[in-house]
Design a protein around this nucleic acid. Structure first.
Lengths: 196, 196
DNA sequence: TTATGTATACTCATCAGTGAGTTTCCTTTT
DNA sequence: AAAAGGAAACTCACTGATGAGTATACATAA
């Protein structure tokens, strides 16, 4: 028995993470999370106010790691910005091969809780997506692309489009197609810049 | 009391439609649907095998109407193909203004049932999305665009990207941005064709 | 009078959340 | 330095509500 608040909370969050991502929010009971974390429901409720609270913390805990993964794929790719943007999509393709992959947890959660606007989990998802878009905008600005915000937004739409389509088709060719479209849009912007 | 099987089934489906779309699949009980349809649960189970069956029929019933709406927006728009494609996104923008709008029911359902691959509702969603992509491919082929399938796929990704992003941001500017990207890609393809 | 359609009233499982009590550990008092 | 007190971290067993699905019986139209 570990009587360590921080550690216990992390254990609960880890269990919640695994179950919520794999099964969905409403499909997972608090009992199941407590069981997976190896403690009782009452203990779970000692650390979290409610299931909704737990859901929100689950998504907040995914913000940084997800962002880091995207940035890593981008940074480690050699070549032009367009190539680096494509590398993000390629990273998603690789991830999607994993049998446990279930798409974007932020989007799936927001979709499931669409009848609860203002739910803290949806806000967490919005914040995460915004952070990604902002980062990408900065990247494009650093390259002196004059339409950086709108270009970043288009790439975001293609990326989230990949996640959406994958939920129905489970065919990574769609992610690659999105990546090529993104690359094409970035290249068009690069060409436009040089013309100035 | 209406003793008309077809009529009763339609009434149940209509009630299911309203509730599933508004609240989500697992958030809606069979009791609630029966109540909204003005009959008992047993009657509902006389007409549908199970809740899963009802979910699948709900989505199948949305296939044609959704497709028709998209085609209407496209057909009624004057101008180039690029303009007509943009009109689809504009149609979604208009729809999204409605307070009852909750995005794409196919995607939200697929996301919620991501832990049940092969669920008939997901297959219904996949079939619907495929039909739309196929239609768009034909449209582009009719215009003698040489990359019709990949162009159609890119537009699909942007459209579903709009639905996905709207779930978190509720900001129709994203749909417009997707529409502009789609238009740009179609225009690039048109230019490429003329060059041949 | 037999098929079809509908209702009442149930089963049993599971849900989110809690009441009441227990163990552990740290601090303060003696 | 030992005992006492109290807060923090935990468990067991429960509540009341609701979930999907059903057994049985009645009604109506052919």
């Amino acid at each position: 028995m570990v009587r360590n608040s921080e550690d216990t909370k992390k254990r609960i969050l880890k269990a919640a993470n695994g179950l919520f991502y794999a099964e969905g929010i409403r499909a997972v009971s608090v009992d199941a999370i407590a069981a997976k974390a190896g403690l009782t429901k009452k203990t779970l409720y000692y650390h979290f106010q409610s299931k909704d609270d737990l859901v929100a913390e689950y998504l907040m805990s995914r913000d940084q790691p997800n962002l880091d993964a995207m940035r890593k794929w981008f940074d480690e790719q050699e070549g032009s910005i367009a190539d680096k943007v494509y590398a993000i999509f390629d990273g998603v393709v690789q991830s999607s091969q994993h049998p446990k992959w279930r798409g974007c947890g932020f989007l799936r959660t927001a979709g499931e809780l669409a009848n609860m606007p203002g739910h803290p989990a949806i806000k967490a998802g919005a914040a995460h997506k915004k952070r990604f878009e902002t980062w990408l905008t900065e990247v494009f600005k650093d390259q002196k692309l004059n339409d950086a915000p709108s270009l970043a937004r288009q790439v975001v739409l293609l990326l989230d489009g990949s996640f959406a389509v994958m939920m129905v088709h489970h065919d990574s060719a769609y992610i690659e197609a999105a990546g090529r479209a993104a690359k094409q849009l970035v290249e068009a912007s690069l060409k436009n810049k040089k013309r100035k």
